[in-house]
Amino acid sequence: MVKKRENQDFVLSLLQERKGDAMYDGGKIIPGLVIFVGLMTYPIWSGNAGTTPKPVKPTGHEKCVKHKEFMRTSHMVLLNEWRDEVVRDGNREQIHIGDKVYDKSLQNGCMHCHTSKKKFCDECHNYTAVKPYCWECHIQPKETI
C-alpha cells in the first residue's frame, strides 16, 4: 500500500515537472474566462441596489383585515381565497374588523383604502418583478392623482 502511494507520488511529481508556467491555448481559455467572470459578476456591474419601495399608506384607516406581517408575505393567498369564495361560491360575506366593515373585494375592499395601484401595489411588485394577473379580469383603476 505504501509502495503504491510512493509510486503515485513519483508519477505526480513527474507530471508537475512537465507543467511549466506556459499556458496552452491561452488565446481561447483567457477570453473564455473573461466572458465567464463577466457573466458571473453581471449584477455587480449592471446596475445599482435600486431604491427601497415605499408604498403609500392609506390615510384615515388604521387597521387592515390582517396584521402587517401577514399582509407583507401572504396577501396574495388571502386574495386568492377571496376570489375563490366570491367568484366560485358566491360568498360575499363582509369582513368585520373591530367596528369596521370591509367588502370581500379587491376593488371595493382593498382599494377602498389603498386607492392607488401605482403608488401601492406597483411599488413592491416592480421592485421584485412580480406580475400578478389581477388586471387580466379586473379593469385597472384610473389613477386619479
Binding site: I44, A49, G50, T52, R72, T73, S74, V77, T128, V130
Partner: peptide
C-alpha cells in the same frame, strides 16, 4: 412559509452593490 421578498431583495441587491442592508 412565505417570506418577505422586499426585505430580502434589499439585502441581496445590496450585496451586488456592496451596500447591503
Amino acid at each position: 412559509i412565505r417570506v418577505d421578498v422586499v426585505v430580502i431583495k434589499e439585502l441581496t441587491a445590496g450585496l451586488a452593490s456592496f451596500s447591503p442592508k
